[in-house]
Write a protein that binds this DNA or RNA. Structure first.
Lengths: 150, 150
DNA sequence: ATACATAATATGTATCTACATGGAAACCGG
DNA sequence: CCGGTTTCCATGTAGATACATATTATGTAT
């Protein structure tokens, strides 16, 4: 009878292998750490790393609707819907109907949002540069690209 | 007067550079995609990728308390506290007092939890192998390691 | 021993994330 | 034009995550 307190050696060994190698765990761990770093760097701007990224996604589009934005940003449609809401509440973005198809909504930055993003860019650039001294940022980008095939 | 609908070219250009290169965004994107893949692969087991990882962390320890586990797993103490609760609710883990210091709690897998983890290991191994054909898992591990320095 | 500081954990609050489902608009076959 | 289907988005629900703060127990100086 194996006590839970002292699991079988093999289980512990397997668990250690999982902990070390699991790409799921490791990718989330890296994301947590990198995001925490950026959040600290961006704290003064009143933007989180996630918000900055999403605003940049929006600014990068010429004009597009929520579904397309979800696609491009690799977010669940429902997740996007909610992440947009916090930006909307702070009046950084605006969401409006598309007259030609009333099911669709279009997003864009407000003037306030554009100014906020503009102010954030150099801070982000600086933070990313410091980050790049510790983590190979081009590799991170490759990873994001490659994982799309999953 | 620049309309928000058509932000300054420079802003859009900067935004595109951010979207492409931001290690924060890219790391979260990769983590989302990898985690979603593993969640699908693990669906039958009644475990999410995050739960599996955390259970493995617990199993990998000989004996330890919550603070140490938070450290090792790179999670906020408060985050860990809550993630453990869902495992506890399903009776996969047990949390008890440490008699020598009543502030501390110790965690371990229940028999049910150990069996569940044991069953999950081969499934994880298979999933990780398939994942590795698309994403270099050793690189992901390096990233997690390197980002600790942030 | 008592009062104050420190340590370990839990809880309040809020954002990020996703799956399942709901509601409204558009589309399409007859 | 009408009814069924599909598309787009929002919402219910729930886990993952973190910061700030509260709570309880330990340690310490007097």
């Amino acid at each position: 009878m194996t006590l839970a307190k002292q699991p079988k050696k093999t289980l512990r060994t397997d668990a250690r292998a999982l902990v070390e190698n699991c790409a799921g765990w490791n990718s989330r761990l890296a994301a947590r750490r990198i995001t925490a770093f950026l959040d600290r760097e961006l704290a003064d701007l009143g933007l989180s790393a996630a918000q900055l990224g999403l605003m940049a996604q929006i600014a990068a589009l010429t004009d597009d609707t929520l579904g397309a934005l979800a696609q491009r940003s690799g977010l669940e449609q429902s997740t996007l819907s909610r992440n947009l809401r916090t930006l909307e509440r702070e009046q950084l973005i605006e969401i409006t109907l598309v007259e030609t198809d009333l099911r669709r909504r279009a997003v864009w930055l407000t003037e306030t949002g554009a100014r906020r993003l503009e102010a954030a860019i150099p801070v982000w650039r600086e933070a990313q540069a410091r980050l790049a001294q510790v983590v190979p940022t081009d590799i991170v980008r490759q990873l994001a690209d490659q994982s799309e095939a999953l």
